[in-house]
């Protein structure tokens, strides 16, 4: 039997964990502290699946009706 994961669902956008380097680069580019990004719970089903821990930043790539593809970042909180 094939195991089901919510990541395969078409309404779940792609979530990517940022590396330390990418994280630093992003925060520098936006000139912000990590908590000034929107938050996502570590207990969020997708965050759990990709192994996000508090303090991490998740990059979300989703389909957008206006831009085709849009990027958002979430700061992982407990």
């Amino acid at each position: 039997m094939k195991k089901f994961t919510i990541l395969d669902h078409e309404l779940v956008p792609k979530h990517v964990l940022l590396t330390k380097e990418e994280k630093r680069e992003l925060l520098e580019r936006l000139a912000i502290r990590p908590d000034q990004l929107p938050w996502i719970r570590a207990s969020d089903p997708v965050a759990k699946l990709i192994g996000a821990k508090p303090g991490d930043i998740v990059k979300i790539i989703r389909k957008s009706p206006t831009a085709g593809e849009s990027i958002a970042y979430r700061f992982v909180v407990p």
């Binding site: 000034q36 929107p38 957008s64 206006t66 849009s70 958002a72």
Partner: peptide, 13 residues
């Protein structure tokens, strides 16, 4: 207080 809401206005600017 400079929290980010969107990376680009309306996602396409």
């Amino acid at each position: 207080d400079d929290k980010v809401v969107q990376l680009k206005y309306g996602e396409d600017g």
